[in-house]
Design a protein around this nucleic acid. Structure first.
Lengths: 121, 121
DNA sequence: CACACCGGTTCACAGGTGGTTCACATCTCT
DNA sequence: AGAGATGTGAACCACCTGTGAACCGGTGTG
């Protein structure tokens, strides 16, 4: 029964993070995270484009469903909110990486990988 | 979905380095590199002319989109920035080779290859 | 109805990044 | 050695991003 429903269920895995959009749920090492709708939505869209850079404009369009006005900082603010919650749930990992001038990229990476040219922030 | 769009996607392979210009992304052994726009652009243009010597003038024209002024050192400075990041990401490899009086050449070569009759620089 | 709470939005300021340009060091070739 | 080419570190500054907080409207509760 539940099996049947889940056969087509979208499940996104990002390292120790698991996102199940249809259940409006995200888990960190199995534990449910408390995310608001917008937060989960943003995380989901990032996860669907895992390891690829997504521009703010595209993210805004995907999550808010309309064109982003210039200088709108909503995406940044929500990225911040997500980072705080993800950091609290999974310290030692970093997930949302900033690509200056381009946008954000989601990928599970261990933190503070020193100056080796890879993502550190 | 996204797969379809990627059918014609340009992907440049230089040894353990992979450059995907359309995603504004370069990977070292699969791991995303943090490069600035200019850096990626320069790396891309070099990669498109892999293993061939490219003059500063041509590189400048390709990356900056205008004529290079005499004594402009921008290309050198960015070559340096790239070298530092590539060295950090893939120690043991060297990629950007200087050809004195001519320009630069991109090619993945193991480092410190001594006495093999060829020059690494 | 009054009120506390919560999420979403917006704003202002802090802080960081990248592009450009210099100045000086080092190297190459003659 | 000398001239010119290239390597390298750093300063400067415009612009981008991070961050804390105020504000606002809806909702649930006493």
């Amino acid at each position: 029964m539940t099996e049947a429903t889940q056969s087509r269920m979208e499940v996104l895995d990002v390292g120790p993070l698991q996102i199940i959009p249809d259940e409006h749920l995200a888990r960190a090492d199995g534990r449910a995270l408390m995310l608001s709708i917008r937060e989960l939505r943003l995380l989901t869209e990032l996860a669907r484009r895992m390891d690829r850079i997504v521009t703010r404009e595209e993210l805004f369009q995907l999550v808010w469903g309309r064109e982003m006005r210039i200088r709108d900082r909503s995406v940044d603010v929500y990225v911040r909110k997500l980072r705080v919650k993800l950091e609290a749930a999974l310290p030692g990992w970093s997930f949302i990486h900033t690509h200056f001038g381009l946008g954000y990229r989601l990928a599970a990476e261990p933190k503070h990988v020193v100056n080796n040219g890879f993502t550190t922030r």
